[in-house]
Design a protein around this nucleic acid. Structure first.
Lengths: 218, 218
DNA sequence: ACAAAAAACGAACGTTCGTGCTATTATTTT
DNA sequence: AAAATAATAGCACGAACGTTCGTTTTTTGT
């Protein structure tokens, strides 16, 4: 017979998976502040009020924990930046939405220490191994999303035919990471506003008359 | 009487200072790869074939070692990027020299793991304390150097009067850090070439007819 | 050359690191 | 409700961490 409760809406996941998720949610936050290598199992266990060994059992090793953390961060990133932009029409609006959502994602402290991948990228950029590869992979994909958005804007006739999508996607990415640096390290509260303006200026400089207007928020 | 050796040219520094220097030279290299927090005293001592305690005595604490490492890195950065550019005439040539020397400094692996400050910036960007402040300070100065170079280029009539120096300096910085990311993390060997081209394009887009030509190396 | 000072060492400290085990609880499934 | 399974806790390990201390070696100034 079925369970007496007619509302099986929530928590269909088994206990283990739920715990795992909450561990990873704390792990990504911690990693964005202390770095991925700086997230120790003991520290993580304290934060979650569980035993080191109990937590450890969810992952076979520290490296597996790091890989799981990277992929958890990837999902959160997709959720906050990529997915909302994909619901915008292809072309300049979608490209612009990617920019705006990225900035909002940093501004809104989705991760406590700013963008997880900004930290992880520069932490692992001269190492070897699967963790570095996972990070590089995620970033390659992100750059790919940006590149395709630029291509889409070209196809929609919003950007000039002379635009090089890889080049321009890289430029936008650079502005994003530069803004992150100004915001987080230099504590320049205006940094992210300026990034939005600069991004818009750059898009407009390469736009055709067909390009719809790009609105700054608020 | 003077020493028998008539060539007292080298090593006027006392022993302690010389050792300290060689420690810090290894420390910055190691930090550019493993991160500043990742440089352990034991590891550093192994690398230099000296005892942990002997090395430790040169610095009162790990934090002091980190601060010394930051300022050693700062000197190396100045030597490789800022000083050579200052011998160029103020204006677009000096701004362009800053760009080129920065790229060369990354490309030439002055630090084993790429730019020390790229790593350190993103490692400490959401922490507190004197180490973070020292890094932020150095980066603020670097941004200042870039900003003044843009101002100089405006004054020389090489850049349009409409150029906002802070804005444009930030843009150049962003391209630099973006290039570092492509080069180090994505292992894109063309990344730095593309950065040079993009930087030149951006300068030219804001240049007046008076602006001298900016040559790409090789 | 000798005495004073500085530098380097070796051992030990208390912690924390990642990682095994073996129990003991919770949760599912029957 | 009982049996089977999964999740967590407890404890211990060897290694590495930053740091302290007393001793020995090396450099320096006279």
């Amino acid at each position: 017979m079925a369970t007496a409760r007619p509302i099986p809406d929530k928590e269909a996941l088994p206990k283990g998976a739920r715990t795992r998720e909450s561990i990873l949610r704390v792990a990504v936050d911690l990693a964005s502040v202390e770095g991925l290598e700086g997230v120790s199992i003991g520290r993580l266990a304290d934060e979650l009020k569980m035993s080191k060994s109990g937590l450890f059992a969810h992952f076979g090793s520290k490296e597996d924990l790091q890989l799981a953390t990277v992929s958890a961060a990837r999902e959160i990133f997709t959720e906050h930046v990529i997915r909302p932009a994909l619901s915008e029409p292809a072309g300049a609006p979608r490209l612009w939405a990617l920019c705006l959502h990225w900035v909002k994602y940093v501004e809104g402290k989705v991760f406590k220490g700013g963008c997880f991948f900004a930290a992880a990228s520069f932490e692992f950029d001269s190492r070897k191994g699967p963790v570095r590869d996972a990070i590089a992979n995620a970033m390659q994909e992100w750059l790919g999303v940006l590149t395709r958005a630029v291509e889409g804007a070209k196809k929609a006739g919003h950007l000039k035919a002379s635009v090089n999508p890889e080049q321009f996607a890289f430029e936008i990415y650079s502005l994003a990471i530069g803004g992150h640096w100004g915001f987080q390290l230099l504590e320049d509260t205006k940094a992210l506003d300026r990034v939005r303006v600069t991004m818009r200026d750059r898009i407009k400089a390469l736009a055709t008359p067909k390009c719809p207007s790009l609105k700054l928020p608020r």
